[in-house]
Amino acid sequence: MSERKQGRRSAQSAEQTKCEIMRVATELFCELGYERVSLRNISEKVGVSHSLIRHHFGSKEKIWYAISDDLHNYMETYLRTVIDNIPANATPSIKLYSFSVRLLAHMLIFKQPIQLIADAVRQEEALIDYFIGTAGEIEAIVNGIADEYNNDHPDTPIKIWEIKWQMLMFAHGAASLGPFMMETWSEETDDYQRCLLNHWQMFNSIMAARFNVPHSDILSPEKVKDLVYPMPCHEECQS
């Protein structure tokens, strides 16, 4: 084998190891919380040496930031996907409604972002500050749609952060209080996915009413995951 091929294979192996470290660390941070996870916990579960993790990342904090960066990039791409799938000629009301209910659907199915955010609130300010931002192209697009809506509805303006807050509450409730969610609809079903759909429907009803969405435009999926757009895996993390 040539030195070039050996070098390429070595680089791919190193990248796969880094991805596996991040995957395991994400699971541990979500399950146990940042403070209760150590580099040794991560190394034991991944099956690599403590020193190898330090070689790739340096510290637990740097692993957390790498995970956060990765999730941020993923969510930026997903948000763009949601926006791109909303008809350009839709009214601001429909755009905001579609964006909010589809984004919550994603957050209910893929819980790790909200779990990390909730844990970050309990940690150093630097961690939660990392998640709270008002800059970026997606933020500007959503704010622009909100401005259009407020221009059309000056008597009932909306605040984007209030919509975000409602979304966070619904996402975190399903992620951290699953048994209570199941108990809420225990008389009609014991199926988790059905309860998750009922939970999403509560938010859906609130958003549909808030944005005066015509009945014909209100989404009515059979499962929450039906509202989630497929996303490719990161190339560097594929085998």
Score class of each variant (00 low, 15 high):
residue 60 K to A: 11
residue 19 C to P: 02
residue 57 F to S: 08
residue 113 P to H: 02
residue 61 E to L: 12
residue 39 L to P: 04
residue 69 D to R: 12
residue 30 C to Q: 06
residue 94 I to K: 10
residue 87 P to G: 12
residue 43 S to C: 04
residue 95 K to S: 07
residue 117 I to N: 00
residue 20 E to F: 07
residue 94 I to D: 09
residue 103 L to W: 08
residue 63 I to G: 06
residue 43 S to W: 04
residue 103 L to F: 15
residue 35 E to F: 05
residue 116 L to V: 05
residue 25 A to F: 14
residue 32 L to K: 14
residue 19 C to W: 15
residue 75 M to G: 00
residue 78 Y to R: 04
residue 29 F to R: 01
residue 63 I to N: 05
residue 93 S to I: 01
residue 89 N to M: 02
residue 40 R to S: 12
residue 120 A to R: 00
residue 46 V to Y: 08
residue 39 L to T: 06
residue 30 C to T: 15
residue 100 S to Y: 03
residue 107 M to C: 11
residue 120 A to I: 05
residue 99 F to V: 00
residue 18 K to G: 10
residue 37 V to N: 03
residue 83 I to A: 01
residue 98 S to G: 07
residue 24 V to E: 10
residue 122 R to N: 13
residue 115 Q to R: 15
residue 36 R to E: 12
residue 113 P to T: 03
residue 45 K to R: 12
residue 89 N to K: 09
residue 29 F to D: 12
residue 25 A to I: 10
residue 56 H to V: 06
residue 102 R to K: 15
residue 54 R to P: 00
residue 101 V to Y: 08
residue 100 S to D: 08
residue 106 H to E: 12
residue 25 A to S: 13
residue 59 S to W: 08
residue 52 L to A: 04
residue 108 L to C: 09
residue 41 N to W: 02
residue 31 E to D: 15
residue 32 L to N: 11
residue 99 F to R: 01
residue 120 A to C: 06
residue 40 R to F: 09
residue 114 I to A: 08
residue 122 R to G: 15
residue 32 L to H: 10
residue 36 R to K: 13
residue 102 R to W: 08
residue 74 Y to C: 05
residue 63 I to A: 03
residue 95 K to Q: 14
residue 98 S to A: 07
residue 49 S to G: 14
residue 73 N to V: 06
residue 60 K to L: 14
residue 20 E to L: 15
residue 49 S to M: 03
residue 44 E to N: 11
residue 73 N to G: 02
residue 48 V to A: 01
residue 45 K to H: 09
residue 61 E to G: 14
residue 26 T to M: 11
residue 71 L to Y: 14
residue 83 I to Y: 00
residue 23 R to C: 02
residue 84 D to L: 11
residue 97 Y to N: 05
residue 30 C to Y: 09
residue 108 L to H: 08
residue 31 E to F: 07
residue 98 S to Y: 03
residue 39 L to I: 15
residue 53 I to Y: 03
residue 25 A to G: 13
residue 37 V to I: 12
residue 112 Q to C: 05
residue 96 L to M: 15
residue 110 F to Y: 13
residue 46 V to I: 01
residue 44 E to I: 00
residue 89 N to L: 11
residue 27 E to P: 00
residue 26 T to W: 05
residue 79 L to C: 12
residue 102 R to C: 13
residue 38 S to D: 07
residue 23 R to Q: 12
residue 80 R to Q: 15
